[in-house]
Write a protein that binds this DNA or RNA. Structure first.
Lengths: 201, 201
DNA sequence: CATAACTCAAACATAGCTGTTTGAGATACA
DNA sequence: TGTATCTCAAACAGCTATGTTTGAGTTATG
């Protein structure tokens, strides 16, 4: 089984299994960045030897999973126009990205142990920077709270997204409900707080 | 070296080392629930054999770390009077607990691999329930937003606290700054949002 | 000061995981 | 249908980490 073969000439079953392995890797890594290759194989419904037949090392599997995640992120995030109203831009970003950011999280965790996994880190850094820039712009325009550092608000953004992914993974939150609460929660995070003296109804 | 010996009759150096090992375990587990015993020993400034001299297994060390965390939590959280104004109660809870909740997080992660680590899970569940009850009360009193499930707001509470701990651990947030932004962020999470039509300054 | 407690380098055994090989059976495809 | 690809059980090798033992040196304590 030569891994240098392009997808185009793989048999149907090999293609299916390869895709299943990558998907299983992303799911398992999100839950546990140190998941074993045996578990990933099992989650993909293939044997361990088959997994190694497709990816000769953990590193190679991580790279393939990263490439797929980056490709998906590029397809979903790059086209986003974040130049309009900061609130609406943030909501658009949240709505488009919350599912995929959890994949980054798992891969980043795994990448910590694999020296050289620069691509995934760099891509995630770009995403973080993008979020941060948007938050900074919202602050400059007084659309977002500026009493807290943008860096902290960015960290909160990701914390909430990952928290949501965990809730979904553990069955406590449905995807439908998530699509509603996540954007609202992120908006709450960045909203300018009411004046200290004002009372809420 | 008999581990059944009570602390009272341990030599001073043994007491110091034992405490250092537990503390190192909590710190290391918070960063990585699967940290090796070798790393914990190193972080504690002792040899691996010394660690095993004090704790005959990973499980025993986890239990001791859990016992200490529970004891600290009890000392710090149990006396809190959460019966007053929901906003103030939540702030009190945040201010008192954010440092210790990260210890629970690491221990819970480690506990996932150790069947029987029920005490730490149970204690954490109690804490979660306590937060959730408070949030529910705040919702019932219209002091907190009720358009999102209390369960979700509880998850966000913990996500923010853990996010903060990570930021501190990685040097991006100082403890001083954390003491300011965390309570404000948690308040933002639960605050009743402004009416959809109102505009912010 | 004498002695017990404590520490730890070195070495050992074992378990679990990664990575590899082999060959028979299954699957895909022309 | 023939053939190449693909899969995987079984087995192997090597590595890492856990848990254990030994004995010499260090530290604490009465």
């Amino acid at each position: 089984m030569t891994n240098a073969t392009t997808d185009r000439i793989r048999r149907a079953d090999a293609q299916r299994n390869r895709a299943a392995i990558i998907e299983a890797a992303l799911v398992c890594l999100a839950a546990n960045p140190r998941v074993s290759m045996t578990e990933i194989a099992h989650a993909a419904g293939v044997g361990r030897v088959t997994l190694y037949g497709h990816f000769s090392s953990r590193r190679e599997l991580l790279d393939a999973a990263a490439a797929q995640t980056i490709s998906r992120a590029d397809a979903q995030l790059a086209p986003l126009d974040l130049d309009g109203d900061a609130r609406e831009a943030l909501e658009l970003l949240v709505t488009s990205s919350w599912r995929i950011i959890d994949n980054f999280h798992g891969l980043l965790g795994a990448a910590e142990q694999e020296l050289g996994a620069d691509r995934i880190r760099e891509h995630h850094d770009q995403t973080m920077l993008r979020v941060r820039r948007l938050i900074e712009r919202g602050q400059a325009e007084a659309r977002f709270r500026s009493d807290q550092p943008a860096e902290w608000l960015t960290a909160c953004f990701f914390a909430i997204l990952h928290g949501a992914a965990t809730e979904i993974r553990e069955g406590r939150l449905s995807e439908d409900a998530a699509a509603k609460v996540i954007p609202a929660t992120v908006q709450a995070l960045v909203s300018v707080p009411a004046a200290p003296g004002s009372r809420h109804p």
